[in-house]
Design a protein around this nucleic acid. Structure first.
Ligand SMILES: Nc1nc2c(ncn2[C@H]2C[C@H](O)[C@@H](COP(=O)(O)OP(=O)(O)OP(=O)(O)O)O2)c(=O)[nH]1
Ligand SMILES: [Mg+2]
Ligand SMILES: [Mg+2]
Ligand SMILES: [Zn+2]
Length: 568
DNA sequence: GCCGTTTTCGGCCCGACTGTTTTCAGTCG
């Protein structure tokens, strides 16, 4: 899949054009790049079907550049810019607080074209020779260079959210706060998070700001104003706080939740309606018409409420206009978790502890799915042990009538798509989950055949974490997902949205494509301890980003219906 | 370069914070 390469080229062209002072085109290239980067379909497949124009932000010119890249492996415009513009300028532009204008100024006036040259110039005071650059700017640049060296990669959602929630508790305890919430990519449940964004309503914003910049984990204060402050935390991550009045809280939350694309579209819509939208509210002339809640802001723009997970600039506003927004699935819709480990294999807790924990979360059923025999490293169960585990489950079921315990297994998909238990064993189970846990680097065709062969086994119920990626750690396997979706509609294999915070696999974009293809879906935690069951909300977050409704997900069904689905 | 409940051409979101500015440009969210 060449999506990332195409996106990188478009981002690159955007940077170069911006350095040249070109207007508007950089954002056009960036929007296109973001959409190509985030979509689940292979841009090459779309191109073959002559459908790249369907990608938001791709018009005639960008379509031609995609075609050029896929045919020749290069984009001339990009190569030309790259040859013209010194390598180091893009790097300089990436320094926090230094943008295209400053970069160009430094290059034109001081012939600075590398970060190292810039550092020397800032330290020596050579910078001051240029009008518009003073000592504070020099200090800022040096700080920016240091921050760059301490750069941290985007944090996974499941780690960032508790940090943000901790900050909210801290702030509430130390300043008068009427309303407070996480915003940004965290609220939209993006799989990775660039920074922590928090929005608060308070009558004493200065106190909130003081509490924020005084948090024990603050390493550096980047900027501090009356309504907005930014800090760097001990782990290198940035946190932004915005404080507004209560009557602007809804508009502020809308603004701070984004996405940027969504914001710009809403603001453009407001203009077209003769109004104006900013973080303080919607106004007509100088009369404020909405602002206290997000609902009333959307309403003022003639739209129904759009859930944060949908605010990606991926057609949600058009769908809202047509009255075709999905009724998104929520955590409460889930009636069971079908991917749960116990200490029979590599789980931390006992079978009984896991089942009780599932019951405590209100589930009607829980599926136990320990590892299969070949996965020695995870204590995979031998065939006899499967039978022993089954006896323990029957025993426990007798003691716990209020939750149905389904006995399954997470079965390795071996070479050639063979499953890690013989059919006689699989037949005795209530369900079976297939997983790729080995030979991750097979070429796409082999891997796809391997997975599809497994799906065609009549006893395989669920395909777990289909791409097998670990966010920031292991790349997805080479798998032809559209084909897998296609096959799932025929075999009825449910494709998993694995809610484990390092996996989120399938993710939202995949889920949306899978739904469009008509594939059955299921959300599971893959819990290896009782607390792991709480990760369900992250799977639900991805499902919501994928526009899924309860009916698209098999484990929202009642026990009777779910059992019927298993028995089909 | 894209795109159309405002347009097929002429727009393209809008405000906070900072630094160096004598009135505003640059950067960022
Ligand atoms: N109107 C408008 N809003 C913006 C702009 N840039 C950012 N925002 C809003 C929407 C963003 O979701 C929100 C927070 O900005 P961030 O830079 O933190 O982005 P976000 O959290 O979406 O992604 P991240 O994971 O932090 O990279 O601020 C902009 O240029 N215009
Ligand atoms: Mg953010
Ligand atoms: Mg931010
Ligand atoms: Zn598992």
């Amino acid at each position: 899949m060449k999506n990332q390469e195409v996106a990188r080229i478009f981002f690159g062209i955007a940077d170069y054009l911006e350095l040249q002072g070109v207007e508007f085109k950089p954002s056009a290239y960036r929007r296109a790049a973001r959409n190509i980067e985030g979509m689940s379909q292979d841009v090459e497949d779309l191109w073959r079907e002559d459908r790249v124009g369907e990608i938001p932000g791709i018009g005639k010119n960008l379509a031609a550049k995609i075609a050029e890249f896929l045919k020749t492996g290069r984009v001339q415009v990009y190569e030309k810019l790259k040859a013209e513009i010194p390598e180091g300028l893009v790097e300089i532009m990436r320094i926090q607080g230094v943008g295209p204008k400053t970069t160009k100024l430094l290059y034109d006036r001081l012939d600075i074209s590398t970060v190292e040259e810039l550092r020397e110039a800032a330290e020596s005071g050579r910078l001051y020779r240029v009008k518009g650059l003073g000592p504070k700017k020099a200090k800022n640049i040096l700080r920016g260079i240091e921050l760059r060296e301490a750069y941290v990669q985007r944090m996974i959602l499941g780690r960032a959210l508790p940090i943000a929630e901790g900050m909210i508790v801290y702030l509430k305890a130390r300043a008068p706060i009427d309303q407070i919430a996480v915003g940004g990519s965290l609220r939209r449940m993006r799989e990775t998070i660039g920074d922590i964004d928090i929005l608060a309503a308070s009558e004493a914003p200065a106190e909130v700001m003081l509490a924020f910049v005084g948090m024990p984990d603050v390493q550096e204060v980047l900027l501090q104003g009356n309504t907005k402050s930014s800090v760097i935390l001990g782990n290198g991550m940035q946190a932004d706080l915005r404080v507004l009045d209560g009557e602007s809280y809804g508009a502020g939350l809308l603004y701070f939740t984004g996405s940027k694309d969504h914001n710009i579209r809403l603001r453009s819509l407001a203009i077209s309606l003769g109004m104006r939208l900013n973080e303080y509210g919607v106004s007509r002339g100088d009369k404020q018409v909405a602002g206290a809640t997000e609902e009333e802001v959307y309403q003022a723009l003639g739209l129904p409420y759009i859930e944060p997970e949908l605010r990606q600039g991926q057609g949600e506003i058009e769908a809202a206009h047509r009255g075709e927004l999905p009724h998104l699935i929520s955590l409460e819709n889930l009636r069971g978790d079908l991917h749960v480990h116990t200490n029979w294999s590599d789980g931390h807790d006992t079978l009984e502890a896991m089942v009780r924990a599932a019951q405590a979360r209100g589930y009607e059923y829980v599926g136990i799915s320990d590892h299969s025999q070949s996965l020695h490293i995870a204590g995979g169960l031998k065939e006899e042990e499967v039978i022993e585990e089954d006896a323990e489950i029957k025993d426990l079921q007798g003691k716990m009538p209020d939750i149905r315990i389904l006995h399954g297994a997470e079965v390795d998909i071996l070479e050639g798509g063979r499953l890690d238990y013989p059919d006689e064993v699989l037949k005795g189970l209530d369900f079976a989950i297939g997983s790729i846990h080995s030979r991750f680097t097979q070429p796409e065709e082999e891997m796809t055949d391997r997975v599809i062969t497994a799906m065609e086994n009549e006893f395989l119920t669920i395909l777990a974490h289909p791409t097998a990626r670990h966010i920031n750690e292991r790349e997805p396997i080479a798998l032809d997902l559209p084909r897998v979706f296609e096959v799932a509609t025929i075999t009825g294999t449910a494709l998993e949205l694995n809610a484990g915070i390092s996996r989120l696999d399938l993710n939202g974009a995949h889920a949306r494509a899978a739904k469009e293809a008509g594939a059955p879906l299921i959300i599971n935690t893959d819990a290896h301890a009782t607390v792991g069951l709480d990760q369900m909300k992250f799977g639900v977050g991805q499902a919501r980003r994928g526009w899924l409704e309860a009916e698209d997900v098999v484990n929202t069904r009642s026990l009777a219906e779910f059992q019927a689905w298993l028995d089909r």
